[in-house]
Design a protein around this nucleic acid. Structure first.
Length: 692
DNA sequence: GAGCACTGC
């Protein structure tokens, strides 16, 4: 242990150079550490690129409130840095080292890897917390991995995150909604708790803006001598990755049809290049299926094994992707963005990058989120290319010109914060006591329009009052419920209508992607089976029937299979439902069933979703509706049980925007219920009774 | 009679 830098001991002989712009520290020559352990796991640890920066990292963390670590994939930073910190004493005295990840799967796999390296049982010294699963032991767990969403939730009980000595925010370059929120909040926490150390780990070089953001200036300078305050200047350290070299190829002329170009490129790779699997990035399910079709026709006798990959795939189909490529075959995986970050495929040597992905954009004026095909960023393009260099040197074929890449492609994507509705963000910040939302120190400020729209929506739901403060009890209760605020409001209203037992089932189903299995080819049969569950009132009531059937079957996977229902989705429904019933009990709400009084059920739904009311246009031949709020043209989605039924008045849960705006999850209502539920929002007989 | 990139609490 003596070889390691320990807090409070002499500074290591490391050359640190002052950066001319603002005193940022760079490491110019990493020290070489030697002699630790002899087991093969230890040797593996020492071979990781991050190992030679061990002393430097510990020095920087000791002396800087914030340390920014720029490292490519494979550097080992995620698994090693928490261990270095623990070895250096950061987990002593009951303190905990936290490391956040954007995704659940990463949390679990990294935690078990670290537990294995440390030779401890997962859930004790090394643990993790994700929703529905807490594998930590109080006073025992020293290194804790968790999703950034869970850490945000923890802040509601422990705003200063007192139990943590160091918080490492990993994958910060992805700039997810919760990462951005967390970073803004951590900056605030740091001001109150100068001893807290933050490590921000990012794959891109945009460390400068992160550094500027975290360059805090504290008011109270005087600190006790034995408790020295770390420098408020963030340190930046760059760690190289371990990936193999990937040769980049561009097209010479822009392509007009990237689908066809992708197919041609795959065939030409197969024709000219040595063995190795191919990963193709396209935008969505339709494109992917079309490409699979084209390639399969071509692939009859030529040894290509073509597989689609997107999140809606069944478990069995996803497993196909991971099974080893049969001898003499070449695997071609045609994928959405899911393979860019969420899934890692081994054995990929060639990547074909269309340069596009589907991205969410939010328009605050009509309060609608759109999913559109848009060009990716340079950061994404690099990430995609990197997928070819995991096992050996690879090649990436970009279906755009080099000139386009250099001159036109944006360096970074737009942070999710600037592409989303902010209702959930706003309510979480409010619950943390941040009243001046407009003045919050964001890493990337959302548009004032989006902010105002979020405040308006929350006000209309009775979650915020005129002073934009959380109402009591509704506002505080909604903030406790980990769901979209409109769903939370619906749940709380169900208490007054006496149907909370049923409503939490609906809320749970609405919170999972889809409980139906996506079928191709068996559409007609699927529709017939669906009719067994269909309720005249609409989709929400239909879900109650499905849930009942599932419970009645003894939660049988066989039953699900027979009824085209996604078993894994149903299990998640059960989990969410459990969580909600525990939460409601804590809020003092007694669960009660309305015994299929669908009128009170729908009134409870309206209490959350009155703003989504629509009226069928008179004489509309194609089932066109208009939203009451903003006269937006919308249609019932063909997957709804009310498709072609077209009741005069409906309320929808969400919109899917493609060529038209489609309402997904629709119920039929009586317009008088709207006025009853939201008299402040709707008035009788006015042409456009929107309140804004 | 048409279709939902991806996460997360």
């Amino acid at each position: 242990m003596s070889k390691y830098w320990k807090p409070g001991s002499e500074r290591p002989r490391t050359v640190l150079v002052d950066d001319e712009e603002g005193g940022v520290l760079f490491l110019s020559s990493p020290p070489s550490s030697s002699g630790f352990g002899h087991s093969s796991l230890e040797r593996q640890r020492q071979r990781l690129p991050v190992y030679k920066y061990r002393t430097a990292i510990l020095y920087l963390v000791e002396n800087h409130a914030t340390t920014i670590i720029v490292g490519e994939t494979g550097s080992g930073k995620t698994t090693q840095i928490p261990q270095y910190l623990k070895e250096a004493g950061w987990a002593e005295g009951g303190r905990v080292i936290a490391c956040t990840q954007p995704r659940r799967l990463a949390v679990q796999s990294v935690a078990s890897r670290v537990a294995e390296e440390m030779g401890v049982k997962l859930g004790e010294e090394v643990g993790y917390t994700i929703r529905f699963e807490d594998q930590t032991k109080p006073n025992v767990t020293k290194i804790k991995f968790l999703t950034d969403g869970v850490l945000l939730r923890e802040m509601m009980d422990d705003p200063l995150l007192i139990k943590y000595s160091v918080i490492m925010v990993d994958e910060a370059h992805e700039r997810s909604l919760s990462t951005d929120m967390l970073l803004g909040l951590l900056k605030k926490v740091q001001r109150r708790r100068p001893q807290l150390r933050i490590i921000i780990s990012s794959a891109t070089i945009d460390a400068k803006s992160m550094s500027t953001f975290f360059h805090i200036r504290r008011r109270n300078i005087g600190q006790a001598a034995e408790d020295p305050t770390p420098s408020e200047l963030p340190a930046i350290l760059s760690v190289e990755g371990k990936g193999y070299n990937v040769e980049i190829h561009y097209v010479e002329e822009p392509v007009s049809d990237y689908l066809q170009a992708a197919v041609n490129t795959v065939l030409s790779i197969h024709d000219k290049e040595p063995p190795g699997d191919i990963l193709v990035f396209l935008t969505g399910q339709d494109d992917i299926n079309a490409a699979v079709q084209l390639l399969t026709e071509d692939a009859q006798n030529n040894g290509l094994l073509v597989l689609p990959l997107f999140s809606g795939l069944s478990r069995a189909d996803q497993d196909l992707i991971f099974s080893p490529t049969p001898k003499g075959k070449r695997k071609v995986v045609i994928s959405t963005n899911i393979a860019e970050t969420s899934l890692t495929l081994e054995g990929i040597v060639y990547v074909v990058d269309s340069g596009f992905s589907k991205q969410r954009f939010y328009n605050p004026i009509p309060d609608i989120e759109n999913l559109v095909v848009a060009p990716i960023s340079k950061a994404s393009a690099r990430q995609r290319a990197g997928r070819a260099g995991r096992v050996q040197p690879g090649k990436c074929f970009r279906l755009y010109t080099e000139e386009y890449f250099v001159k036109e492609m944006p360096a970074e994507g737009i942070p999710e914060m600037q592409r989303s509705s902010l209702v959930s963000c706003v309510i979480q910040l409010k619950a943390l006591g941040i009243d001046n939302i407009l003045g919050f120190d964001w890493l990337a400020s959302p548009s004032p329009e989006a902010m105002i729209r979020a405040l308006e929506v929350l006000y209309s739901l009775g979650i915020l009052d005129e002073d934009a403060k959380l109402t009591s009890p509704t506002g505080f209760q909604v903030a406790e419920i980990p769901l979209d605020p409109m769903i939370s409001k619906m749940i709380l209203s169900a208490d007054t209508y006496g149907c909370s037992e049923d409503i939490i089932t609906i809320a749970a189903v609405l919170s999972v992607q889809s409980i139906w299995i996506s079928v191709r080819g068996a559409q007609k049969e699927f529709d017939e089976v669906k009719l067994r569950f269909a309720a005249a009132e609409g989709d929400h009531v239909t879900y109650l029937n499905v849930y009942k059937g599932f419970i009645h079957s003894g939660k049988s996977s066989q039953w699900c299979y027979k009824n085209y229902i996604n078993y894994h989705a149903m299990k998640k429904v059960i989990d969410i439902r459990e969580q909600l019933s525990r939460l409601l009990r804590r809020l003092g709400i007694v669960l009660k069933s309305c015994e299929r009084d669908t009128q009170v059920l729908r009134k409870a739904i309206i209490a959350g979703f009155f703003a989504h009311a629509c009226c069928l246009e008179e004489f509309s031949p194609n089932g066109m509706y208009k939203t009451i709020k903003s006269s937006q043209e919308v249609y019932i989605h063909p997957s709804s049980v009310l498709f072609r039924v077209n009741p005069k008045w409906v309320v929808y849960h969400s919109l899917v925007s493609t060529d038209k705006h489609y309402m997904r999850n629709v119920i039929a209502i009586d317009p008088s219920w709207l006025i009853e539920a939201a008299p402040h929002f709707y008035q009788v007989r006015k042409p456009n009774p929107a309140p804004y």
